[in-house]
Design a binder for these strands. Structure first.
Lengths: 111, 111
DNA sequence: TTTACTGGTATACTCAGTGATACTGGTTAC
DNA sequence: GTAACCAGTATCACTGAGTATACCAGTAAA
């Protein structure tokens, strides 16, 4: 019981650490919704800056959450494709969306 | 489709805002696991400081996530009881625990 | 009487995450 | 020629979430 509680907490904190930060989850969601190009993702998440998006996408590429592909066309075309690993967050994100919908009236957003 | 995507994102960001911060989710989890007293909760979450726990518990009381009760015994006894509202995070937390377990090997914790 | 528990408060600090703004080099459309 | 798109980079500034450490009053056990 006690041991189990500790193990649960560690699993929980691993997850929290991995999706920590303000933008990681919205970006995963955007990719899973079919957005692929930089400006497309940027537009799909109001409030995010190019700087933060760029930074997050780089980290996510390193963490194997997405694959960045540069097509040598003209003009140059870059796509960000979510990996199957990225999609393992589907359940968490869906539950978060469910919660947000159910409690829309309660939460006061910060501007 | 486009409209729907925006609505989803807002629900998602509401949730993220509400459970934002490093300690909120672990505290909810601790309460839901049956921990009730201040030092008990504190011990159940390694790394948290009294200051952060105190701060979070106050906010959570204001947000109706828990009820703080002072029993006028000797020595004084204080309990923190999760509300049904608090328990609505059960699904999200369970999914986070599941994810953490499944990907234990991949994540590198900080410290 | 000294140690350790309870439920916290007080003060000071720090730094990572985020925001704001501007800019680049190339392409296409008007 | 100029305006707007693409995919970003470069600086600078900031702030508040989180850390570290110490402390308090009361109770109780050794």
């Amino acid at each position: 019981m006690e041991r189990n509680q500790t193990e649960e907490l560690m699993a929980l904190q691993d997850t929290l650490y991995f999706i920590g930060g303000k933008w990681r989850v919205p970006i995963i969601n955007s990719l899973c919704n079919g957005n692929r190009r930089f400006r497309e993702i940027e537009r799909s998440i109001p409030g995010i800056t190019t700087r933060m998006l760029s930074k997050e996408l780089k980290e996510m590429e390193m963490n194997k959450l997405l694959v960045r592909t540069v097509y040598d066309e003209t003009p140059v075309l870059v796509t960000y494709e979510p990996t199957p690993y990225c999609r393992t967050f589907g359940n968490i994100i869906q539950e978060m969306i469910n919660w947000g919908r159910a409690h829309r009236k309660v939460v006061l957003r910060h501007a």
